[in-house]
């Protein structure tokens, strides 16, 4: 097994462990108090102006209906086209959109490269109809993705450097991240020029999937692109670029979490646990006594009540 194969497995393992750890960290945090923000798409089309169940008399007596389709219809243009940025920060969207679309298409291209590799293992190489389709889609999505991604990166770097409102809040690492991604897009494009059918790349993936030696020798450009990609892959979960995590949790679990507390046993159990947590806040009015008191204790005390 070559060093590049070992590195691939290593970077893949780091990505999986680090990303899963991050997801787990947020998923296992306590249920917070409600902090929703309207409009909430699952309230449905008839409340698309931002209305909620609070507009209904005796709302707790009504059966709650969440319009999940409306929520997906909201999420789709948001994920694909970054609709919120289009509406509220158009000048940044002009570059952010091609950048993100470039990423999506490149990842889709990589997925079809993997499908092509699996087909090849199954005895359906690119000379077959199915293998040829996977190859064509790999080339189309990958190359368009590289071009769009590169345009986006160049635009975002220039925008971030030239707009004082952005540059004041940007650090060298922000530029490094963008340039790193840009280098992956550019070298990916150059790989395509050297390897127009991505045949060498596919053989490399076959070797990774089957844990076997590579058939073809990778070119220098393949190595460069792989090194940039693999190192970024391992680095990515440690950065704020994983903002798809915040997008999921902050929207689905915070801004859209309007579930009222109606005595669900699971929710009740959680609240009882939290009320038992020790409090160590130091301000005198809290009266926490350095953790001797719990949330239930401090919340039910009234330090200013007249003593009977």
């Amino acid at each position: 097994m070559s060093w590049i194969q070992i590195l691939t497995y290593l970077c893949g393992a780091i990505f999986i462990v680090a990303f899963a750890t991050k997801l787990l960290k947020y998923a296992t945090m306590p249920m917070h108090v409600r902090w929703e923000l309207y409009p909430i798409p699952h309230e449905g089309k008839h409340k698309s102006y931002g209305g909620s169940f609070y507009e209904e008399i005796d709302h707790w007596k009504n059966e709650r209906h969440k319009d999940h389709l409306a929520q997906y219809m909201f999420m789709l243009p948001e994920i694909l086209f970054i609709k919120a940025l289009y509406e509220d920060n158009r000048s940044l969207w002009y570059w952010s959109f091609p950048f993100h679309m470039g990423l999506y298409l490149s990842i889709a291209g990589l997925a079809f490269l993997a499908i092509g590799a699996i087909l090849q293992i199954m005895g359906l190489p690119s000379s077959t109809a199915l293998g040829s389709l996977a190859q064509s889609l790999t080339i189309l999505l990958g190359v368009v993705g590289y071009v769009l991604g590169t345009i986006g990166v160049v635009g975002l770097v220039i925008k971030r450097m030239s707009d004082p409102e952005l540059s004041e809040f940007s650090a060298p690492i922000d530029y490094m991240n963008l340039i790193w991604l840009g280098a992956i897009f550019v070298t990916g494009f150059l790989v395509w020029l050297k390897d127009p059918g991505f045949g060498i790349s596919r053989d490399y993936l076959v070797s990774i999937i089957t844990f076997s030696p590579m058939k073809d020798q990778l070119t220098g450009m393949h190595y460069l692109n792989l090194l940039l990609f693999l190192s970024f892959f391992a680095y990515f979960p440690f950065t704020h670029m994983t903002h798809m995590v915040s997008k999921y949790f902050m929207w689905d679990k915070v801004k859209w979490d309007d579930n009222p507390n109606i005595g669900d046993p699971g929710v009740d159990a959680k609240i009882k646990t939290y009320l038992g947590y020790p409090v160590t806040w130091s301000a005198a009015h809290i009266g926490a006594q350095g953790g001797k008191k719990s949330w239930a204790d401090v919340a039910t005390e009234n330090p200013w009540a007249k003593k009977e």
Binding site: Y26, P30, W35, L85, L92, H240, M250, K253, Y277, T280
Partner: peptide
């Protein structure tokens, strides 16, 4: 000490993209 708001706080501290929207 902050079960009430820990999750949205931790997410908001980690993920700002500094876009100024």
């Amino acid at each position: 000490n902050n079960w009430t708001f820990l999750q949205p706080l931790a997410l908001s501290l980690e993920y700002c993209a500094k876009c100024q929207t």
